[in-house]
Each structure stands twice: as C-alpha cells, then as structure tokens.
Computed example of a mutant assay.
Amino acid sequence: MSIKFRPAQLGDIPAIAALLANLFAIEQDFTPDPARQLAGLKLMLPREDILMWVAEEMLEEESKIVGFCSVQTLISTAEGSVVGLIEDVVVPVEWRGAGIGRQLLEGAEAWARRRGCSRLQLLADEGNLPALAFYERQGWQRTSLHNWRRMLRD
C-alpha cells in the first residue's frame, strides 16, 4: 500500500464529493447534495487561504482518493490572530485504522502553522462516536462552546 498526501486538484473533486456524501449521510445536520458539494469544492479549490488535502492510494495504473481534509482560515477576536477551521475530515470505512486520518490532520496542522494560525478547531457530529474517539486520541480537546446556525437559504 502506497499512500501519497497532496493538495487537491480539479480532477479530484468528483471523488472528494463522493467521500463527502458518505460523511453527510451519517451526520444529523447535513444531507448529501452532490450539486452543492461540487459547487462548494469548486469555490474552495482556487483559494490560497483554504487547504484541500487529499490522501491518494497509488496503484500501478491509476490512483484513488482515500481521504480528504479541508481547512479554512478565519480571524479570531478571542485569539487576536488567524485561526483555522477544519471543515471536513473523511476517510472511507475500509481505510480507517491505517493512519490516514492522523496524517490528514497532521498535514492540516502543518499548513495552518505555516500561515501563522494560533488555533485549529473543528466540528464533529455528537452521534459520530468513532470520530469523537479518533479526535480525542489525536489530542484534540472538547470545548464548552455549542455550535448554532441560522440557514439563509433552503
């Protein structure tokens, strides 16, 4: 097994959207919508303040995306600096336990550090117990903050 980690490219977007469909299918707050996922990914790709990081299995004649992580930068008034928001982390079930998620997060952290981010944060569905346990094993800490939202479109 040979896995390569690299920034996403335009040709990766359909495979990333398929990974997101699997993630959103288990989350309570989101519903898979391929058109929206493709649109969002295409908006993200050219931006230098967003990392789209993929894990790619290298096969003899082709390759396959087997993991994805994205980080967007924000300004935090609490920190008085740039911070990173990890929007997505997804690894297919059959690839979990191979270290791909850990390496995706390490790549995201390295990218955020190079940009001067003082903090990374992420959201995880409270019912996704394997993900919560994974983040805890990686040294992430829960906060007392609750996530709230107001939808501005259907």
Score class of each variant (00 low, 15 high):
Gly139Met: 10
Thr143Cys: 09
Glu109Met: 08
Val89Tyr: 03
Leu41Gly: 00
Pro34Glu: 08
Leu123Lys: 12
Met52Trp: 02
Leu38Tyr: 12
Leu23Met: 10
Cys117Asp: 08
Leu129Val: 14
Met52Ala: 04
Ala55Ser: 02
Ser81Arg: 14
Met58Tyr: 11
Ala8Pro: 01
Gln138Val: 10
Val89Lys: 00
Lys42Ala: 03
Ile75Val: 11
Leu43Thr: 07
Glu48Cys: 08
Gln103Leu: 10
Leu85Lys: 13
Ser81Cys: 14
Arg113Asp: 08
Leu38Phe: 10
Asp49His: 10
Gly127Met: 05
Ile26Val: 14
Arg47Cys: 08
Glu57Ile: 03
Ile50Ala: 06
Cys117Ile: 08
Ala18Trp: 07
Phe24Pro: 07
Val90His: 02
Ile50Arg: 08
Phe24Ala: 09
Gly67Phe: 00
Leu123Val: 15
Gly67Gln: 01
Asn147Asp: 15
Asp33Ser: 12
Ser63Val: 07
Ser63Arg: 09
Arg142Ala: 12
Arg36Leu: 15
Lys64Phe: 06
Ala35Asn: 11
Glu60Leu: 10
Ser70Val: 02
Ile26Gln: 10
Lys64Ile: 07
Pro7Val: 02
Leu145Glu: 13
Leu20Asn: 00
Glu27Gln: 11
Gly97Asn: 04
Ser81Glu: 13
Asp12Ile: 00
Val89Met: 04
Ser76Thr: 05
Asp154Ile: 10
Phe30Met: 14
Pro32Asn: 09
Met151Thr: 14
Arg113Ala: 12
Glu94Lys: 06
Ala21Glu: 06
Thr73Gly: 03
Arg96Leu: 05
Asp125Asn: 06
Asp29Ser: 11
Ala21Asp: 05
Gln138Glu: 14
Lys42Pro: 03
Ser2Phe: 13
Gly116Tyr: 13
Pro14Tyr: 05
Ile16His: 00
Ile26Phe: 11
Ala78Ser: 12
Ser70Trp: 01
Pro32Asp: 09
Lys64Pro: 04
Arg149Trp: 15
Val54Ala: 01
Val90Thr: 05
Ala131Ser: 07
Arg149Glu: 14
Gly80Arg: 03
Phe5Gln: 02
Ala8Lys: 00
Glu57Gly: 03
Ala133Lys: 15
Tyr135Trp: 12
Ile50Cys: 10
Asn22His: 13
Tyr135Arg: 11
Arg36Ile: 15
Leu41Glu: 02
Glu136Pro: 08
Leu38Arg: 13
Gly80Val: 02
Leu23His: 03
Glu94Asp: 10
Arg119Pro: 06
Ala108Leu: 02
Glu48Tyr: 10
Ala78Arg: 13
Ala112Trp: 05
Ala108Phe: 01
Leu43Val: 05
Ala98Gln: 14
Asp29Arg: 09
Glu126Tyr: 15
Val91Asp: 01
Ala25Leu: 11
Ala18Lys: 08
Asp49Gly: 09
Ile65Gly: 02
Ile16Gly: 01
Ala124Ile: 09
Asp12His: 00
Trp53Tyr: 05
Ser144Met: 08
Pro46Val: 01
Ile26Thr: 12
Arg6Gln: 04
Gly101Ala: 03
Leu20Glu: 00
Arg47Ser: 08
Ser118Asn: 15
Arg150Trp: 09
Ala133His: 12
Arg96Glu: 04
Ala39Cys: 06
Trp148Asp: 14
Ile100Val: 03
Val83His: 06
Ser118Phe: 14
Leu19Cys: 03
Ile26Leu: 13
Ile65Ala: 00
Arg102Ala: 06
Arg150Lys: 13
